[in-house]
């Protein structure tokens, strides 16, 4: 656990040292703030004292930004050879993957915490549904850890950051859109399967304020699978 935390801490420090963190935070807040408050289907148009609009925008911006956070995680380590340095220290493959994962999740958490002024503003304007808001944030967090795990896996299979970014986005696209579209086009058991795989429907059900164990299991199992595949892809070096 200590080792995981040391790796996560360094990862987070690197984000803030290299401006990546500021760029990601700036873009995330700018993007979600613009569409929540200023443009299109914004909060004033909806006219309700809740953060539904923000949650839906944030889910889209995180979908794009998380692969950008995770792309360098292992791809760069592999490319520069520092992976060898890390894994010959008292660090297991699993600890490395979990450390990297935790580091990115923490950055996403910081981004989400930075949107707290939205919550304060809305609660001043009207009567905010606290339960719904907490569930909304929980949904965003669960979605983020899922995409982060996918991103860490995508980063573990290549030495090229762009390839890692595209792979993560491509896998994410299935969960974010394609399974949903397929679910609408198929009926019967096949449609059911696609609906179960559709991340949006699980996300919406949580952000509506319903915490169902089915949704939790969904997010956590993809996360575990992503991390496990990442570990497996690291361990392949033993057998090449």
């Amino acid at each position: 656990m200590q080792t995981i935390w040391i790796i996560a801490k360094r990862e987070l420090a690197t984000f803030f040292d290299s401006l990546i963190a500021y760029i990601i935070l700036g873009l995330f807040l700018g993007f979600s703030g613009f569409f929540t408050w200023l443009y299109g289907n914004d909060i004033f148009l909806v006219g309700q004292a809740n953060l539904r609009v923000f949650f839906s925008i944030a889910s889209w911006s995180l979908f794009f930004f998380i692969p950008a956070i995770t792309m360098k995680m292992l791809a760069e380590e592999r490319k520069t050879g520092t992976l060898e340095l890390l894994l010959t220290k008292s660090v297991t493959d699993r600890q490395l993957i979990l450390g990297k994962f935790l580091g990115s999740v923490l950055l996403v958490c910081i981004a989400l915490l930075a949107t707290l002024p939205y919550v304060i503003t809305i609660s001043n304007i009207g009567n905010l549904d606290n339960g719904g808001t907490i569930c909304g944030y929980l949904g965003l967090l669960l979605m983020s850890i899922t995409y982060t795990a996918i991103g860490v896996f995508a980063s573990s299979i290549t030495t090229n950051q762009i390839v890692a970014f595209m792979t993560a986005l491509f896998i994410g696209l299935f969960f974010h859109i394609i399974f949903g579209v397929l679910a609408q086009n198929f009926t019967g058991p096949l449609g059911q399967i696609f609906d179960t795989l559709n991340l949006q429907s699980h996300f919406e059900s949580i952000s509506r304020g319903v915490i169902d164990s089915k949704d939790l299991v969904y997010f956590l199992s993809i996360t575990v699978l992503g991390l496990y595949l990442g570990e497996w892809s690291l361990s392949k070096r033993h057998f090449s």
């Binding site: 690197t14 040292d17 520069t80 050879g81 060898e84 340095l85 010959t88 008292s90």
Partner: peptide
């Protein structure tokens, strides 16, 4: 056993931004 080994890999990879 890794705790007992100090290793300098070939080409000396380092975190250049640290």
């Amino acid at each position: 056993l890794k705790k007992h080994i100090g290793y300098l890999p070939e080409n000396n990879p380092l975190y250049l931004d640290m």
